[in-house]
């Protein structure tokens, strides 16, 4: 097990280094000059431009800049926003919590619904529920998540007036105590629904095929032969073993779910990473863009690492088979 963990950690560290290099390259190799963004559109005297270039180390050779970038990164310095002059790391971290507040409950909800549907579909051998699962998955994969958000706003906010269209709390009457919680939930409902649908597509597809596969395994036959009730076979044996691929897919799709969150936040003006990202795009705020990419990619690497370790802990075959990659 120790050897397996060591191999996974080394690989994760190599990935982070590679990702840092990509984040550096997208800001330094692509057309569009950071100095232009800094100096602005106003025609600046050449001396001033070269002064700015020197100040930010942009006159150094590329490998030297890369080294400085990596050293700064190791110290937790991801540069400063061109727009607000705030440190990128604190800008991103300040928003990450709000995004997770939206993402995590939606992911849990999607996983529970998806797995429950899959187990019941596997149990009933039923066409209905099975078709429903396939349909949910197909539509979830095909629908633009931001458009789903727009439609929900048109129906529930504009026409019915039941729920607010944007933000995370009411500006006029945020309320206090239980009122504030209810106010938050009202703002939370629509964007959370979008992300749940978006994510249910992934979970439903994997859970369905995993549960069906488990039903045909020998241990299910054994469990039935022992005289266990069908319910016990399903919820104890099939579910437990069928969950492993589902957990893997949830862990491995962290980047995918982050994408859904960013697009959904944009529709509902949810003040999380998505909003920071869109503002950075509009203002060509290089350091913030590459900072968000870097931290998101590191989060994905960590999520994958956690998934691998969890997987190895649950399934001994993985760690025995693996010197390196399972």
């Amino acid at each position: 097990m120790a050897r397996y963990i060591g191999a996974r950690l080394t690989w994760a560290a190599a990935m982070v280094l590679g990702i840092a290099i990509v984040a550096f390259l997208i800001t330094h190799l692509l057309p569009g000059n950071p100095v232009d963004a800094l100096v602005g559109d106003f025609p600046a005297p050449p001396e001033y431009v070269s002064k700015v270039r020197h100040l930010f180390g942009l006159d150094q050779p590329l490998p030297v800049q890369l080294w400085l970038y990596l050293v700064n990164m190791a110290r937790g310095n991801l540069g400063f926003s061109f727009l607000s002059r705030q440190p990128v790391l604190s800008l991103v971290l300040a928003r990450a919590g709000t995004t997770l507040l939206l993402m995590v409950p939606s992911l849990i909800l999607a996983s529970l619904i998806g797995v429950a549907m899959a187990v019941r579909a596997a149990a009933s051998h039923g066409r209905m529920l099975d078709s429903a699962l396939t349909a949910v998955s197909l539509i979830g994969y095909s629908i633009p998540v931001f458009w789903l958000g727009q439609i929900l706003v048109v129906i529930f906010a504009v026409n019915l007036g039941w729920l607010p269209a944007e933000g995370i709390r009411s500006l006029r009457e945020p309320g206090s105590g239980i009122g504030a919680v209810l106010d938050f939930l009202r703002h939370f409902a629509l964007p959370a629904f979008c992300i749940t649908v978006y994510y249910l597509a992934v979970v439903a597809r994997v859970a369905r095929s995993s549960m069906v596969e488990m039903l045909h395994q020998d241990f299910v036959l054994t469990a039935r032969a022992k005289g266990l009730s069908e319910r016990a076979v399903l919820w104890r044996h099939v579910l437990r073993n069928g969950l492993i691929p589902v957990i893997t897919v949830i862990g491995y799709n962290f980047g995918y779910s982050l994408t859904g969150a960013i697009l959904t936040e944009t529709v509902f003006a949810w003040p999380g990473l998505g909003e920071l990202f869109v503002t950075a795009i509009a203002n060509r705020d290089y350091p913030v863009l590459s900072g968000i990419f870097l931290l998101a990619a590191i989060a994905v690497v960590l999520a994958n690492l956690a998934t691998d370790l969890l997987y190895a802990a649950v399934d001994p075959r993985v760690r025995i088979a693996a010197g390196g990659r399972a």
Binding site: M15, G18, I19, V22, I26, T27, L30, P31, G32, G255, L258, T259, I262, F277, A280, I281, R284, Y286, L289, S290, I292, F293, A296, A297, V300, V301, N304, R325
Partner: peptide, 21 residues
């Protein structure tokens, strides 16, 4: 391939298009 699969594709695509035009 594994390295490319880990990268958050959408965020990287947006960053590249935003910076390159």
């Amino acid at each position: 391939a594994e390295f490319f699969q880990v990268m958050p594709t959408f965020i990287l695509a947006v960053a590249i298009i935003a910076l390159a035009g």
